[in-house]
Design a protein around this nucleic acid. Structure first.
Lengths: 161, 161
DNA sequence: CTTGAAAAATTTAAGAA
DNA sequence: TTCTTAAATTTTTCAAG
């Protein structure tokens, strides 16, 4: 297991704030965590440098932008050689409409999240997955009716002690 | 269906950049989309105001921070009255370790993503879901072995024409 | 580690095209 | 719409506690 970065309370607070307010100014952040702007910035830079903060992203509201559907596909491979996994993983990374993919244990091998224009397009993506060069034998599709709780942050307070 | 915001090429480019570089300076962004800083900022503010940009977030690298596991739970309700759905939806929103929940069609009713410290804790969360006040009759768990393709952006280029 | 002040860079508003 | 200019704000460095 990789060695973890030691975090004090202030670092935790900084990370918590940046998770939900990624574009907060350093001054406001410093105020929230009771630090001077300069030491606050130094900590943020260090967290970035140590790759505790991976990146920053704008969260778009697709509803406002275009028609789309989200599907979750449970994908099973016919064989479970390491090479079969690798090939599939490599393939999904090339598809922009596959927005997320996890390798999982349980009743299937991969859980694949797909965002595309409509059902017709989803069927095309499905075909592509079936013909990905790997031995995909089964895809069970769940259509997302409602994003009840969209991802917004990790439960830092629960995870760190 | 809600009316969509009209986007020209420049708006699309701005959104694409901000999806992957959420903390880019306005000057750099303006340069990338071939606009002056002031008109670029005006467009960004308008996209924010129109809620095309929902929010900004820091993407944390949990690996560097703590021990944790991610599980995906496929939850089925015993009955499908609207009230049963509502109750469950309300409940998962109160659990920080439930980082994402979708209401879906297919072999189950909800797909719930859970990030917690370890398996022991996962079992506790599972119990909580089973006793959520709703009629949860079945939970099938997939443990995430590897986040093959973490979510990073929507396929804007595919979705907008 | 921290603070606080100064310099550099960026954001933002206003006026003109 | 856009750009240019200039003022306000923020970031960033650095000497010192």
């Amino acid at each position: 297991m990789r060695e973890k970065r030691a975090l004090d309370r202030i670092d935790q607070n900084i990370l918590s704030v940046l998770q939900t307010e990624g574009r907060i100014t350093n001054q406001q952040l410093a105020e929230k965590v009771n630090l001077s702007p300069s030491s606050c910035l130094a900590r943020v830079r260090k967290l970035e440098e140590d790759r505790c903060i991976e990146s920053y992203h704008a969260q778009l509201n697709l509803e406002r932008l275009c028609r789309y559907i989200t599907c979750v596909a449970m994908v099973s491979l016919g064989q479970h050689r390491q090479e079969d996994f690798r090939t599939f993983e490599r393939f999904v990374k090339t598809l922009d409409e596959v927005v997320q993919c996890d390798t999982v244990s349980g009743g299937c091998d991969f859980i694949v999240r797909i965002v595309c224009a409509d059902m017709e397009r989803y069927h095309e993506v499905n075909e592509m997955l079936l013909n990905s060069g790997t031995n995909v034998v089964n895809i069970k599709t769940h259509v997302v009716m409602s994003e009840t709780k969209p991802f917004s942050k990790y439960p830092l307070d629960d995870l760190l002690q």
